[in-house]
Each structure stands twice: as C-alpha cells, then as structure tokens.
Nucleic acid binder design. Structure first.
Length: 419
RNA sequence: GGGGGAAUGUCCCGAGCGGCAAAGGGGGCGGACUGUAAAUCCGCUGGCUAAGCCUUCGCAGGUUCGAGUCCUGCUUCCCCCA
C-alpha cells in the first residue's frame, strides 16, 4: 500500500496521515478523486445516542473527502440498525426499538455538521437514512434481484459469520442478512447518487467488498473500498475507553473539558499518529511537533487536545478547556470552567459531611470508596489533603465566590458551588 | 424428544471439603517515581448512620444451628444422541 504514489489530493492526504488500511484499487480510485469525482459514503449504526471517538477516524475520512473536492455522504443506518451487524461481535446484538433508533439517529447526526458542510450544492455533503429504502423492500423481489447474487457458501466463510460458527455461538437469521443489506445499500447509493466509494473500519472490509461484488453483478459502475486501520493506543488498549466509560462525541455526554483531557492524556508513543489522524494541522507543523523530545512532548499533546477539541466543539470551547487545564494544572488556581456541582446553603449549614460531598460531586461512587481513598491519600479539599473522614464542610471551606474545590488524584477536580 | 454440563463479587475471566464478604488474575482507582506520558513498585477494588449492621454466588422453594456449596422445581446457555 505504501508503494503507490497517489496523484489525487484525497488519497495523498489519507496516505500520508495514516488512514489507509486496505483499498480495493488505489489507482482506479485515485483517478476518480483527481477529477473530484469520488462520491464516498460511510455508514453509521444508530445503536447509541452518540458516536464515540472510535468513529472519529471514519468521520475524519469523510471530512477529508469533502475538503479535497469530492462528495461525502453520511449514511445513517436507520434501517440496518434494525437488523444488527454481527461483525466483531461475540453476542447477538440487542434488538432496538424503532423509537430508540430514531432518537439515536438525531443524536448522532448532530455531530456531523461539525465535520462536514451539508447542503444542496454539488460540493456539499449529504446525509441519508437507509431506512428509506430498506424498510419498504419486498421479500420476493429482493430474493430475485439481490439474493440470487449471494452464495451462501461464501457467506458462511466470511469472518463475521465463521467466527461465530466456530465458537458455537448463536447467530440468528436476521443478523446473517446484515451483509446483504449493507451490500445492497452500496448499490442503491451508486444508482441514486452516483456513489462509487465506501469507506469504513477494517472490520467492514468484508461487507464493503461484498457490496462491490454485488454492484458488478447488478451492473452499476465500478465501486471502490477503503478501510482504516483499527486504532488502538500504543499500549494496545482500544481507543476511547476511559475510567468514566466511552469518550462520547456529543457534548451533553462528554463536555469539551473532558474531551480535551482525553486527548491531553495521550501516551507519548501515540501523539504523532493521533495528530495526523485527528487534527487538520498541516503535515509540516506536525513534523515540527513530532521532533519534540521528553517533557516537551507535552506541548504537542496540548496542541493535539486543543485542535481535536476545536474540530468537534469549536475553537472557543477548545481554548477555554485549554485555559482551564492550564490554570488547574500549571498554576494550581481555581478555574471556573471545571465541572461544577451546586449545593444549597441549607445543606451546608446542616453539616454536609465531606464524604457525602465527594459522593455528591460524582468523584467517588460511595462513601465507602471515599473512605478508602482518604486512607490512601487520594482526596483533597482546596488542595489540602483530607485526612479526617468524619470532617464536614464548613463555611470557611468556600472562597469569596462560594466555591470549594474537591479533587481526587491529580486529574479529577470538581467545584462545589454554594447556592 | 433423550442424556450430560454450565451460570460466582452488577467491568471481565475465574477458584471455591456445609462456617464465606468468598482464593487468584485482568481491568480500574489511589500512592511513590515522573512530564497531567509510558514502564516499574506499593495499596485499594459490596453498601451503610461503620469496633457494629445490612445485602451478595441465574430464579423460587427446601434440608441444616449454619447453604455459593446438599435436595426439588424453574429460567437461560452449551455439548452429545435422535
């Protein structure tokens, strides 16, 4: 894959930034993209109310497709989600209700407008829901037009199916059909919108290639596939899982400050790779940051955090998060932007125990955990180590603005605001 | 349809002669060292009004002073035979 020298901006960018894992035909796709004639889509499941960073590579790929003068389509899997993709899954997926899928779809879509410019113009990105054509399919027609092109022998040999069978894990007929629907999507998009490229994670390779085959048999123009590598951290962990759970893209589930922190805490070994994948900084700038050594790498991490946050939440929110972090970590002063919990004055007057205060702030899950953390010296009130688990908050703990800072460890800080 | 297994700490994996808040991992959290990194070392990893009390081993009963452990029924999953 690295021998190929793309002449199109699109593939050149993808290649130099490390997006390409597999491609069905680099030179064919390159020729299209050079003319601005690549019309690419990526399908997104509507299984959760928000996408998380695991999908960010894909979103960035669509972003670059549009930025390099091609057409990007964000396909919402309103229809396929009703079926459930077995890829990479050990267990049968939970079947979601139609209402859940609809509300998930809305949550997911809100993220795309940050990365793509939608509209009616030829260069504008569009979004479409495959429920539009999948839900009205006629079973017999489908079998005759599409089903006959699929070999069950081959379907059984696909990774997603084979692994289930080998482990004697249940796979329902509904899931078995998923790959047919995804392949069909590709041909529908090809006919309706002139789509000629499907992108996705490496686990989607089989499904995408199936679509290319189906397209050929059903007489569409030539279709292409590009997949991204599976993004893991240098330590081998899956991207996007933190203590608090998944790193969501929607602000109501992961505020900008938390999102910024996620990137700020990137391992050294990942910084260069992530800068290329998750920011739009020019390669020259990235090269400069990559040259940093030792503690200086922190500057690159701050850059990564701010740029990645700016893409998702806007420049202003990103700068605010960076400033909050700077005050909190470098100056050790109070930054108003930290997560804040409001408590009533009455509650404090009644003698709010410190243990409960930490629970209330969401820093620990129970007073028991708070006690344990105190024993191992992990809790601080206004930067002073908490040693007495029987202590209660007093008026003097709040500053002139009625704020007290609760911290656990070096990174977790929550402000308690007296109402 | 017949026969045989399995389900354990609400993150996961997994031991568990009738005395068990239940071995051991992984993961996670905190501490030390650092650079808000990695690696390493140490501690913690049911709840509470906490020298006590309460709730946990698929579900419901039963035997027993005492049940994760024994018995009965049920649920779900797996294997073999048909």
């Amino acid at each position: 894959m690295t021998d190929f020298k793309p002449t199109s901006d699109f593939l050149a960018v993808l290649q130099e930034r490390g997006f390409i894992h597999q491609c069905s035909d680099m030179s064919g796709l390159d020729a299209l993209a050079r003319e601005g004639k690549a019309v690419g889509y990526i399908g997104f499941d509507c299984t959760a109310p928000s996408l998380h960073v695991g999908s960010l590579v894909q979103i960035m790929m669509l972003h670059w497709l549009q930025q390099t003068g091609n057409k990007a389509i964000a396909l919402m899997g309103g229809g396929t989600t009703m079926v459930g993709d077995p890829s990479g899954r050990d267990e049968t997926r939970r079947i979601l209700t139609v209402e859940d899928i609809q509300s998930n779809k809305r949550g997911i879509f809100s993220v795309f407008s940050r990365f793509l410019n939608f509209g009616d113009g030829p260069r504008d990105a569009i979004t479409i829901d495959n429920a539009e054509w999948l839900t009205t399919l006629n079973w017999i027609e489908m079998l005759r037009d599409v089903g006959r092109h699929f070999s069950v022998n081959r379907m059984l040999s696909m990774d997603s199916v084979r692994m289930r069978l080998e482990r004697d894990q249940e796979m329902s007929f509904i899931e078995f059909n998923y790959m047919i629907l995804q392949a069909y999507d590709f041909t529908v998009l090809a006919r309706r919108l002139g789509c000629n490229l499907q992108m996705g994670g490496s686990d989607q390779w089989g499904n995408i290639v199936n679509g290319i085959d189906l397209g050929r048999r059903m007489g569409t123009h030539q279709l292409y596939a590009v997949t991204t590598p599976l993004i893991t951290t240098a330590s081998g962990a899956k991207m996007g899982k933190t203590a608090a759970g998944a790193v969501w893209l929607n602000a109501d589930q992961m505020p900008p400050y938390g999102y910024w922190q996620f990137w700020r805490n990137t391992e050294d070994a990942d910084v260069a790779r992530f800068l290329k994948l998750f920011t739009t900084l020019p390669m020259g700038e990235i090269a400069r940051l990559m040259a940093l050594q030792g503690a200086e790498i922190n500057a690159a991490k701050i850059m990564l955090a701010t740029e990645a946050t700016a893409l998702l939440h806007g420049r202003e929110a990103a700068e605010a998060a960076a400033e909050t972090a700077r005050k909190t970590f470098e100056e050790g002063t109070l930054a108003a932007d930290l997560p804040t919990i409001v408590v009533s004055g009455a509650e404090i007057a009644a003698g709010l125990g410190l243990l409960s205060a930490f629970v209330k702030a969401g820093i620990v899950a129970s007073t028991g955990e708070a006690r344990r953390q105190i024993k191992s010296g992990g809790l601080r009130l206004n930067d002073a180590l908490v040693t007495d688990e029987r202590a209660a908050l007093v008026a003097g703990d709040f500053n002139a603005d009625g704020i007290a800072k609760l911290s656990m460890g070096k990174k977790k800080h929550v402000l308690l605001k007296r109402a």
